[in-house]
Simulated assay, not measured.
Amino acid sequence: MNFMLISLEELYWSSRYLNKETGWDLGSISTPLKQYLDQILNFQLSILVPGAGNGHEASYAFQIGFENLHILDISPVPLGEFLLANPDFPKSQCHQENFFAHDGQYDLILEQTFFCALPPEMRSQYAAKMHALLKPGGKLVGVLFNRDFQPQGPPFGGSESEYLGYFKDLFHVLKMEACKNSIPARQGSELFFVLQKPQ
């Protein structure tokens, strides 16, 4: 493992947060994930939000009753802000580490602007790590950009056919379609997806 690379990555993202260069941050939970969480009846699910940033998805999930909830980010800056805003959230479920070094087993992983922050050459590694972190039958749910960015990011974009290439051999693709409930600024440029790890 290249610890120098990890420390530089942590420095990069911490700098972005400290300088308020967080254009991806919606200020609240994204509509697709809010509506997905609202229809779940089992509040005992173990949930991970990787690349959580300011943790709007986690804040909402915690407020509506999900307690077996973990958030992860490589930067301590947004995690500190999250804990200030959510003082009842267990600190032991707040992980400041590299996603690819994280160990755990989850029923549900929520994807919101983490995939697009990674260099495209890491996408196969992302898919394999998500598969490893999910329990059999567990789901990876979220939104992906359905567009390219110029200049290249982060964020890094892509297409449905490209994404399917990374996921179809590891997961059952239950859904990958144009997102119907994106915020206005992202209308027409997002895919909503649900992937399930085979039993």
Rank of each mutant, 00 (worst) to 15 (best):
R123I: 11
F100P: 12
P50T: 15
F82A: 09
A101S: 15
F114N: 11
P120Y: 03
A117F: 04
Q63P: 04
G55I: 01
L69P: 11
L37K: 09
L69R: 12
F66M: 09
I64A: 14
I71W: 07
F66Y: 08
L79N: 11
T22D: 14
L118S: 13
S30Y: 04
G65C: 06
S75E: 09
G65F: 00
Y60A: 02
Q96Y: 00
P120N: 09
F82R: 05
G53L: 02
Q63Y: 00
E97L: 07
S92L: 03
S28T: 10
Y106L: 00
Q125R: 15
L79H: 11
N54Q: 03
A101N: 15
Q44G: 08
T31N: 10
S46G: 14
I74T: 06
H95N: 03
Q96S: 05
V77W: 10
E111S: 13
A85D: 14
S124F: 06
Y126M: 07
Q35V: 04
L83V: 12
C94F: 03
S46T: 13
I40P: 09
S59T: 09
I74R: 10
L26Y: 00
P120Q: 05
T22Y: 08
L110T: 11
G27I: 02
H95P: 06
Q44P: 06
D73W: 01
H70C: 01
C94H: 08
I109H: 10
F115E: 03
D25P: 06
G53V: 03
T31V: 05
G80P: 07
C116W: 05
P76A: 06
D103S: 12
A52W: 02
I109D: 07
P78L: 00
F115I: 08
P76Y: 02
Y60C: 01
E67M: 11
N98I: 03
H102T: 13
Q63T: 13
V77R: 05
G51R: 08
S92M: 07
P32C: 14
F89I: 14
G55C: 01
Y106Q: 00
Q93F: 00
M122N: 13
S124M: 13
S124L: 06
P90G: 15
I29L: 02
I71T: 12
H95Q: 08
E97Q: 11
G51D: 10
L84C: 15
A85P: 04
Q35C: 01
F100W: 07
P87G: 11
H56Y: 02
F43Y: 14
I47L: 02
K34T: 00
L26P: 01
I29R: 01
T113E: 06
V77F: 12
P76R: 12
F82W: 03
F82K: 04
H95Y: 09
G55A: 10
Q112T: 11
N42L: 03
T31M: 04
F99C: 09
F43N: 14
I74A: 03
Y36M: 00
G27P: 08
G55T: 04
N86G: 09
A61L: 00
D38A: 07
G23N: 09
P120D: 07
E97A: 08
I71A: 10
L69I: 10
A101W: 11
H102C: 10
S75Q: 13
N68P: 03
A52T: 14
H95E: 08
N68A: 09
Y36G: 07
Q44V: 00
T22P: 10
L41K: 15
Q44L: 01
C94A: 13
G53Q: 07
I29F: 02
F82Q: 02
A117H: 01
E21W: 06
